[in-house]
């Protein structure tokens, strides 16, 4: 069961117009920049995929990654917790012009909604957001004397994630705090595509060290020496 993909371009080639796409990372940490840029390149060449719903903690920074997707006009809606960053003008401009939708989700609720889909749990109760405007219209219930808000799982057609080590059956490890949303999104999407810095044969990752088991991963592509979003933003790179 070899899940190896030859290039980022091949890896993102099946994502259609209107897809819901989870993109891993927290800010620049663990963000699959090469996969995102391959998606933008495809859009620029073919006009597709467009009208995407993107699920990420943030809404892009600078002129690369998700910010560049938004700027290019591929994104219809962001589902995120914190669409602010040091340079969030791509999202801000579209949002204030009414050209992009925003579903704002508290960060822990976002993580749990993604995890819930991966675990096959359609809804759950959380104390987060009870009594706030983000809970408006949602069912609430009391448990042991405290009020909770019902939240639903979050589904996606594709997840684009970034790992450190991978093997050809899709087992993954992550680098430092780059883990963040990546393992959750791997579980939640119908199709999960991972870029990894090192791709090896089965057995190259000690089973004790596997963070995401290969059952959650559909395709894996090696991107040695990947770009780091924060470094690109700080050096003013434009994609």
């Amino acid at each position: 069961m070899d899940k190896t993909l030859s290039s980022p371009a091949e890896a993102v080639s099946a994502i259609p117009d209107g897809a819901k796409v989870m993109i891993g990372g927290f800010g620049g940490s663990g963000a699959p920049i090469e996969l995102i840029h391959a998606l933008i390149d495809r859009f620029r060449e073919t006009g597709s995929p467009k009208a995407l719903t993107v699920i990420n903690n943030n809404a892009g920074n600078g002129h690369i990654g998700i910010a560049a997707m938004i700027k290019a006009g591929m994104v219809k809606k962001m589902i995120c917790s914190f669409p602010r960053s040091s340079n969030a003008e791509a999202f801000n401009e579209k949002f204030l012009a009414g050209e992009i939708e925003l579903e704002l989700v508290p960060q822990g609720t976002l993580a749990e909604r993604i995890r819930a889909r991966g675990a096959g749990i359609p809804a759950f109760y959380t104390p987060t957001s009870f009594g706030t405007e983000l809970a408006e219209g949602k069912p609430t219930e009391e448990f042991d004397g405290k009020m909770y808000v019902r939240e639903q799982w979050l589904k996606a057609d594709f997840a684009l994630i970034k790992g450190q080590q991978g093997d050809t059956v899709g087992n993954l490890t992550y680098r430092l705090a780059g883990r963040n949303f990546n393992p959750l999104m791997a579980m939640a999407a119908d199709k999960t595509i991972a870029q990894v810095s090192e791709l090896g044969a089965p057995g190259t990752i000690d089973p004790e060290q596997v963070i995401t088991p290969g059952i959650f991963v559909d395709g894996v592509v090696e991107v040695a020496n990947p770009q780091q979003e924060e470094v690109l933003v700080r050096t003013g790179v434009v994609h």
Binding site: F26, G27, S29, S86, E112, Y174, L176, A177, F181, N182
Partner: peptide, 23 residues
């Protein structure tokens, strides 16, 4: 820059530190 805090500032680790996913 893969080692940051929630404010997206770079951090270091103390002995005994651990990593885990968002959930």
């Amino acid at each position: 820059w893969d080692l940051i805090n929630a404010g997206k500032k770079a951090i270091t680790l103390n002995p005994g530190a651990s990593f885990f996913h968002h959930a």
